[in-house]
């Protein structure tokens, strides 16, 4: 079972704080697992997950609607899949994605732009 280690990054310290934390993890030998984006009333909640020896470490912070975040592809290149997906589906601006893997909104072919950007309307089917 994965350990539920969640480190929340304080709102006043991103984006440089995010890169600092990720750099520490990289030099400790952590492997990148995924980035998850959830639409919450305050904006977008991003969770970055890293793994070492089957123990998960998660970084979490919340972005306001329209606020951007710096990409971690400079440290972990494979993050481009998750970052492009979040950009295409949720419309979260992600800055400085590494050259060659910045698809400019064209990674995910969709009929409607940023379909998951708005708050979900609750209710059953």
């Amino acid at each position: 079972m994965s350990s539920q280690d969640l480190v929340t990054i304080k709102p006043e310290n991103r984006p440089t704080d995010l890169l600092q934390e990720v750099e520490n993890l990289k030099f400790q030998g952590y492997r990148f697992v995924q980035i998850c984006c959830t639409r919450v009333p305050e904006g977008f909640e991003l969770t970055y997950s890293f793994d070492k020896n089957y123990e998960l470490k998660n970084l979490r912070f919340t972005l306001a609607d329209g606020e951007g975040i710096t990409s971690i592809t400079s440290l972990y290149l494979p993050a481009f899949v998750c970052e492009n997906e979040i950009h295409d589906l949720f419309g979260v601006p992600i800055n400085h994605i590494a050259k060659g893997v910045d698809f400019g909104g064209k990674f995910f072919r969709l009929a409607e732009k940023t379909p998951w950007h708005d708050l979900p309307k609750g209710g059953a089917h």
Binding site: K106, F107, F108, R109, L110, P115, W116, P120, G122
Partner: peptide, 15 residues
């Protein structure tokens, strides 16, 4: 380039 088979199943969890 992907997206040919996107069905939005993660969004369906709300419904």
């Amino acid at each position: 380039s992907i997206g040919y088979i996107h069905r939005g199943l993660e969004k369906l969890v709300e419904k």
